[in-house]
C-alpha cells in the first residue's frame, strides 16, 4: 500500500538516523552536558558538600571569589595570573620545540621513521608516571638534575625545585613542554608535508636561503595549521591538572606558588568542602576559554570570507 510505504520510508529516512545517534547523544547528555550544567548551577547555590541543604544565592559565590580576602579568594588573583603564565609558557615552548622537531623530521635522513616514532614517547606514557618520574629527577638528594648540575658546578648543594608551597612554576613548565611537544610536532609535520616542494625549489632558484624559505613559504602556508594547533594546545593546557597536582603538590600540600585555576577549583571544592565556590572558579576559568574560542571562531570566519 502506498500509505504504508511512505510511512516506512519516513521512518527510515527521518527516524532511523536519530535512533542510531541516540546512544551517543544520551551518553553526551549524561556524562558531559548534565555535569557541565549542574556545575554551572551549583555555582549559584550555597552547597558545601553532598547532603547539604542547597539554596540559591545568586552571584554571591562570584562576588566572594573576586573580592574576598580569606580562603580560596585570597589566592584567586595569583592563580589566575599563574594560569596565564603556565599556559603561555607551556604552549610557546611546545610550539618552538615542536616546530624544530617537525622541521627536522620533515627532512630525509636514515632512520627517519624510527625518530618519528620515538618523538611520540612522551605522549604514550601515562601522565602520572611522567609526573612521578620528573618528581624523582627534581629530588634534591638523589635526583638526576641536582646530580648533574652539581657535577658541572652550577649548584653548590642540594636544591628542592618542586613540591613546596612557594616552589616556582617553571620546573613544571619544563615538564609540560616535554609532555606536549610531540603532539604539536605531529600537527605541524602534517602541515609541512602539505606544502608543495616546487615552491621551495623555485625559491632556491631565486636565491632564497633557508631562513628566507622558512619565513616566506613555510610560515605563511602553515598559518591555519599553526593557529589550530596553538588554540587546541591553549585549551588543553589551560585546563591541565595532573602534572601540576602530582609534581607541584608533592605530599599533598597546597602549593600556592605553582597553582593554576583548575587546581584552586579542585582544592576549594573537594579539599575545603565548598563545592559551590569551586564550581564558580571553574566557571570563571571556562569563561576565559570561551573568550578564546569565540575569538578563534571569528578569526576563522574572517579567513574563510577572505
Amino acid at each position: 500500500m502506498k500509505g504504508s510505504s511512505v510511512t516506512n520510508r519516513l521512518r527510515k529516512t527521518v527516524v532511523l538516523p536519530y535512533l542510531f545517534i541516540l546512544p551517543a547523544a544520551l551518553a553526551l547528555l549524561a556524562f558531559s552536558l548534565y555535569p557541565f550544567l549542574s556545575g554551572v548551577g551549583y555555582s549559584f547555590t550555597s552547597i558545601g558538600w553532598i547532603g547539604d541543604q542547597v539554596r540559591f544565592v545568586g552571584l554571591e559565590n562570584y562576588r566572594r571569589i573576586l573580592s574576598g580576602s580569606v580562603g580560596a579568594p585570597k589566592f584567586f588573583k595569583q592563580a589566575f595570573v599563574q594560569s596565564i603564565e603556565w599556559t603561555a609558557a607551556v604552549v610557546a615552548g611546545q610550539f618552538v620545540v615542536g616546530m624544530f622537531a617537525a622541521l627536522v623530521l620533515n627532512e630525509r635522513f636514515p632512520g627517519r621513521s624510527v625518530f618519528r616514532t620515538a618523538v611520540l614517547v612522551p605522549v604514550a606514557v601515562p601522565t602520572v608516571i611522567i609526573a612521578l618520574t620528573w618528581q624523582w629527577m627534581y629530588d634534591p638528594f638523589y635526583g638526576l638534575i641536582n646530580h648533574y648540575l652539581k657535577q658541572v658546578g652550577l649548584l653548590s648543594g642540594p636544591t628542592a625545585w618542586v613540591g613546596q608551597p612557594n616552589s616556582p612554576l617553571w620546573p613544571l613548565i619544563v615538564v609540560g613542554i616535554w609532555r606536549g611537544f610531540p603532539f604539536m610536532t605531529v600537527m605541524l609535520l602534517s602541515g609541512l608535508q602539505g606544502i608543495p616542494q616546487e615552491l621551495y625549489e623555485a625559491a632556491r632558484v631565486d636565491g632564497a636561503n633557508a631562513l628566507g624559505r622558512f619565513r616566506h613559504i613555510t610560515l605563511p602556508l602553515m598559518r591555519t595549521i599553526i593557529a589550530i594547533a596553538v588554540v587546541l594546545h591553549v585549551l588543553w593546557w589551560w585546563n591541565h591538572f595532573d602534572i601540576i597536582r602530582v609534581i607541584g603538590s608533592g605530599g599533598g600540600q597546597f602549593s600556592y606558588g605553582a597553582m593554576t585555576l583548575p587546581i584552586l577549583a579542585w582544592y576549594e571544592a573537594f579539599a575545603w568542602s565548598h563545592l559551590a565556590r569551586g564550581a564558580a572558579i571553574s566557571v570563571i576559568s571556562m569563561l576565559v576559554l570561551l573568550a578564546i574560542m569565540i575569538w578563534n571562531a571569528r578569526r576563522e570566519g574572517r579567513s574563510v570570507k577572505l
Binding site: 648543594g157 642540594p158 628542592a160 613540591g163 613546596q164 605530599g251
Partner: peptide
C-alpha cells in the same frame, strides 16, 4: 638549620 630544610621530603631527609 640550612634553608634546604624548607622543602625537604621525608625520603630526602632519611637519605641525608
Amino acid at each position: 638549620t640550612p634553608s634546604l630544610a624548607i622543602g625537604l621530603s621525608g625520603d630526602s631527609l632519611h637519605e641525608a
